[in-house]
Design a binder for these strands. Structure first.
Lengths: 145, 145
DNA sequence: TATAAAGTCTATCGGATTTATAGAGTATTA
DNA sequence: TAATACTCTATAAATCCGATAGACTTTATA
């Protein structure tokens, strides 16, 4: 399961992508529409700003807006930003790699191989799915489930 | 990431499958070999016993042993037993289903669709991978990575 | 039948993480 | 220059995780 933080982040991003023609969007609006606690959301948006995905404008008429193209923001990056590694085991990540004490030989470890597969597929799907594809898929109501 | 509990469980199961001809295996042996805290491991093995995967024998010459066939114990079931749902969001699980407040229409929610895909692939891989396949893959040293 | 071996059960613990809130402070712009 | 809106720091409650302690029960076998 992903954290609420990550989930809120994705929902906020999708909204910002959807409304990106409208100029800066108020935190309070995102918060209300998405039922996301406002103060919590503030911290999340700041993180996304630091990550170079959003920017904000202060003062009257201010708010947050997307600075990356929707097709450039993929789910893998967002999830990693908030929840760290996507893999199920530390020994199949590169950024958070850690050897497993329990396993004698990593090269032949059967458990690791399975988890490696899961990670590869997960990353593939999440990389392919961007704000653009998510928005597009919202529009087509009848979908191959 | 999966919990240590789940990771320990899998390692213990793989060992029990590997040594299943030797009769009951001592908790202390599994603990030592896998560098798993013994008391913690006891609780894990009890859970696996309650789940009908292992059985135990008390007294001298006792220990734990597999009662399911290695090809019947798959990773999806084990992970679910210890960590709950495999999905990344509550709205794409059936056993732990929970509606997302943030989303207006679940049927058209683009985020949900992505997470659904990830879940389907993850479950597919984990279901296909059993103690038997893990053991088999350990034996073949040179592997398509 | 005593006793040692081995699993079972209950309780508890500290620490980390997660989720969330409060409030003061700062920058911006109409 | 006031209203608006973002930023920062602190904190707190709740939950979860990993681990340990210790008393208890069952069983094999000498």
């Amino acid at each position: 399961m992903i954290s609420k933080k990550a989930k809120y982040a994705i929902h906020a991003l999708v909204k910002l992508a959807r409304d990106r023609e409208k100029g800066p969007i108020l935190i309070s609006e995102i918060s209300k529409e998405g039922h996301i606690p406002q103060k919590f959301l503030e911290a999340i948006l700041l993180d996304l700003k630091r990550a170079g995905i959003l920017n904000s404008k202060k003062g009257k008429g201010g708010g947050y807006y997307l600075i990356k193209k929707p097709e450039e923001v993929n789910m893998a990056d967002v999830l990693r930003l908030f929840d760290g590694a996507l893999a199920l085991l530390p020994c199949v990540t590169y950024k958070y790699y850690e050897r497993c004490e329990e396993c004698t030989d990593e090269l032949t470890c059967g458990i690791r191989r399975v988890m490696q597969q899961v990670r590869d597929e997960t990353v593939r799907i999440l990389k392919d799915s961007t704000l653009a594809t998510v928005l597009a898929s919202e529009k087509s109501t009848y979908k191959e489930q």
